[in-house]
Design a protein around this nucleic acid. Structure first.
Length: 477
DNA sequence: GGGACTTTGCA
DNA sequence: GCAAAGTCC
């Protein structure tokens, strides 16, 4: 005899609110008057291969612990399975299903190729797994151009996205009702993985909800004006939560619509710029599903294969360490290294500098970002890097090379962000901070301890022309 | 400070 | 024909 229990398998959807797979698991159990269990699977080797940042792993661990508590209140026990690779999942889940008389497994879909292969493999091998689209407001494949294909340009995608979304009720799902008596508070769970303290970030669905509400109440209208200034807290700072699904994009869009009901149809809406950022996220996820080679470190645009990267290892290390001699670049990289997060404007600036000025393969930078970022997300990270390198979709003309000096004076005009992370230049003039001299007279300020600051690693004008020449030669064929 | 530098998808 | 997170002169 079978007891028809159900299993909720949590992955990148670490929340009990607006979680359609969890709701499905609870409904299944209710129909069959049976029980619900939940699992989270830790795969250190797979994560290492995917370059998941230790700080993100720590953030996930904190949320799995909080999730276990929330689920206990609903009468759902959470087990954490420690495996190594995705390929170990089938055997482990099969055992688990037998052990607990489980007949149905529910999980939210994920866009990355290894994750999708794992899931389709499990289904082929007979695991009773039901995947439910949950990581986007509009599921991959639902936003198509008139030829029935995925868009390759953001603006028409976003227009179509809004027109479809405006026809739909965007209503987050409630937390499911308890399925059984509350369970005792679960024991703390620790992953056997490299970990790096993420306590600088509040954790939990409640914290994410508060950040979202506060941002919408007081900042979203100024987002367009303030989002480009790293010294300000002008961005939502929700990316770490979105990346692991502590908050869903549907919750974010619904929260926008609660305050700005016209957001999807009125281009002058105060929330439109931030809404567009959420649509960028969906765009990149849809792209990852439509073009699986993006998950495999390949150029979106075939032409990218022809770029002869310089790939100078010392220059790459200087970039990673924040020692390029361009204060804006170094401040940005040090923010990443010290906090596990970087302001979005600066992500574009440093990516342009690495790929264009230094001609280092965008994959090197993309990988380094994933290794450091608390909000690491393959789709968005890859999309952003390829956009910067000029190998991506939404093609920018190849001669667009960010000028680090212009970007510096435009977006950190008083140098306050730079000085926070590059104290060596604190006493420099603003002009020198924004336009570091190739021959560095500021060495005079170096202290006897030797905390001098490097001269610019590359001269802008030469590097710009060099990058444009490499790319234009490619276009000429 | 406005136009030139460009390619490509999309309607 | 329009647009695309820029720079240069």
């Amino acid at each position: 005899m079978t007891s028809m229990n159900s299993l909720m398998w949590f992955r990148q959807d670490l929340r009990v609110a607006d979680n359609p797979a969890l709701v499905a698991a609870c409904q299944f159990a209710k129909q069959h008057q049976s029980k619900v269990r939940a699992v989270y699977i830790v795969t250190p080797s797979q994560w290492a291969q995917h370059d998941v940042a230790p700080i993100q792993i720590n953030f996930i661990q904190r949320h799995v612990n909080l999730l276990a508590q929330s689920l206990a209140a609903l009468g759902i026990p959470l087990d954490v399975l420690h495996l190594e690779w995705f390929s170990d999942t089938h055997a482990a889940l099969n055992d688990y299903l037998q052990q607990h008389n489980i007949d149905a497994v529910f999980a939210g879909s994920e866009p990355e190729i290894n994750e999708r292969r794992r899931d389709s493999g499990l289904i082929e091998q007979g695991l009773p797994l039901t995947l439910i689209d949950q990581d986007c407001v509009l599921a991959s494949g639902q936003v198509q151009n008139l030829s029935g294909d995925m868009y390759k340009v953001f603006t028409p995608f976003s227009k179509k996205w809004k027109s479809i979304a405006s026809q739909k009720a965007i209503v987050p799902l409630a937390v499911p009702a308890p399925v059984a008596a509350a369970l005792p508070s679960p024991a703390a769970i620790e992953f056997t993985c490299p970990s790096r303290n993420s306590e600088q970030w509040a954790a939990g669905e409640g914290a994410a909800k508060r950040i979202l509400e506060q941002f919408l109440a007081s900042q979203v209208a100024d987002y367009q004006a303030e989002r480009d200034f790293p010294a300000l807290e002008g961005t939502s700072r929700l990316s770490p939560f979105l990346a692991i699904g502590v908050v869903s994009s549907r919750q974010c869009v619904a929260a926008i619509l609660a305050r700005y009901p016209e957001a999807l149809v009125d281009d002058t809406c105060a929330a439109k710029t931030w809404l567009n950022e959420l649509i960028w996220r969906e765009f990149y996820r849809h792209l990852l599903v439509a073009f699986p080679h993006l998950s495999m470190a390949q150029n979106f645009n075939e032409l990218g294969k022809g770029i002869v990267w310089r790939n100078n290892a010392q220059e790459f290390t200087a970039w990673c360490d924040g020692q390029t001699g361009y204060p804006i670049i170094d401040a940005a990289m040090r923010q990443l290294n010290q906090t596990g997060w970087m302001h979005n404007r600066l992500r574009m600036v440093v990516a342009s500098f690495l790929t264009k000025h230094l001609l280092v393969d965008w994959r090197w930078g993309e990988r380094y970002f994933r290794q450091q970022l608390i909000d690491g997300d393959l789709a968005a990270n890859n999309g952003g890097w390829q956009w910067s390198a000029g190998t991506g979709c939404d093609a920018q003309p190849y001669f667009r090379v960010f000028n680090p000096m212009t970007q510096s004076s435009k977006f950190d005009p008083d140098g306050s962000f730079i000085k926070r992370y590059v104290p060596e230049v604190a006493r420099w003039s603003l002009k020198d901070i924004h336009e570091p001299k190739t021959v560095n007279v500021n060495d005079l300020f170096a202290s006897p301890q030797g905390d001098s600051y490097p001269k610019p690693i590359v001269e802008h004008k030469m590097a710009r022309l060099r990058a444009i020449e490499v790319l234009s030669a490619l276009k000429r064929g």
